[in-house]
Design a protein around this nucleic acid. Structure first.
Lengths: 204, 204
DNA sequence: TCTTTAATGGACCGATTGGTTCAATATTGT
DNA sequence: ACAATATTGAACCAATCGGTCCATTAAAGA
């Protein structure tokens, strides 16, 4: 056995001066910041203030603003997807209830919407890494949705084509829902969206 | 009768030096620019280059960057909505074909997506005027969609609740479609979305 | 023709942008 | 105790941001 450990460089402190901050805590705070303000509108000054760190520490630990953001976006997508994947797994027996629960989980963010939607739209295709994460994000929501929808509609034996269409439709809808939240839709409008989704799947 | 005319200040030239540029042409060029780059990532330098004007002329005619953008956004929404409203009007007899045509008209923008989606997501709720336009935009698409959907599904006599739900669902979907385009979805993925929409409405 | 009015080109502006550099500091391994 | 190593804080940076100012130019009205 080698003495090499799997530990991250920052966890078990090595030689030098120890960090005053916890990386995960900082990332959480900055996730909230980017979520609220978007990418461009978040300045380094904002970042320093929200994190409590100074520039050196920030650049030392996370690199440039883009590096930092990419890391946060990755982390966010990973976190959300774990939740979705779990729900998809658990949907076997639950049928339509699992689909409802899935939607509820998305709707729970309400007017906060979705970090990925809020930021990737703005970066567009200008950053390949980011638009790749956006693609992966869609792919994985799609996969989870599909499983949940299959379980929820098995009773009616819809064809594969219809199931696929419903998956795409719901995926698009959820992105549109988040995008509406981002652009200031009020409670009433958001409720209109959520109610519609429940009505639609009731019909399946 | 008074001598006051309804003419815009810029159309029939008055006293001073005449403009070298056509306002509408410039607005078209800048619409394309904001559409492609978003709001923040479009600098005044970009704007000057794309318009061919210098700063004085720009600020003289259109005010600040925000002013200019708001005007462009308004103009864009107005233009698109005219098209949608016309389609809604014409849908009386056409039934499901009109709904298909409506979708086709949206899908025709393909990976270019939608200026409003690309930019308002980024501005979020930070600019009240902009998020108001976003709200109006949704409201008017919703109204047009509803009419077209009613015409397309009249044969099956769905209840008002279901019609409303379908309207909301399709509105959300279309926003999600545009947002996916913005974040770099490839042709195949976009085709997946469009095919799904056609399949879904076929089922109605 | 000559005054009035508007558009133009470009110099100029302070503020802010993201990012770098480095001495001072704090810790661990020897 | 001391060398090695890493973090921290703050000063500093060039570049770019959106925006203003003003002398010059070009037309219309009198």
């Amino acid at each position: 056995m080698s003495t090499i450990e799997t530990a991250e460089a920052s966890d078990a402190p090595g030689r030098g001066r120890p960090r005053k901050f916890d990386e995960e805590t900082v990332l959480d705070a900055l996730t909230a910041l980017f979520w609220e303000k978007g990418y461009e509108a978040t300045s380094m000054a904002d970042i320093l203030k929200a994190s409590g760190l100074n520039k050196s520490s920030l650049y030392n630990s996370f690199g440039s603003k883009k590096d930092l953001f990419r890391r946060i976006l990755d982390r966010y997508v990973e976190t959300r997807m774990e939740g979705f994947a779990q729900m998809a797994e658990a949907s076997g027996a639950a049928g339509k209830g699992a689909l409802r629960a899935f939607l509820e989980a998305v709707f729970a963010f309400g007017r906060a919407g979705c970090l990925a939607v809020n930021t990737t739209t703005e970066l567009g295709t200008s950053d390949a890494a980011v638009s790749n994460v956006a693609r992966i994000y869609r792919t994985r929501i799609r996969a989870a949705l599909r499983i949940v929808i299959e379980a929820a509609t098995a009773h009616a034996n819809p064809g594969a084509e219809l199931t696929e269409a419903r998956t795409e439709m719901l995926l698009g809808f959820l992105l549109g829902y988040a995008m509406s939240a981002r652009t200031g839709a009020d409670e009433a409008e958001m409720t209109g969206f959520t109610a519609a989704a429940y009505t639609i799947i009731e019909d399946w």
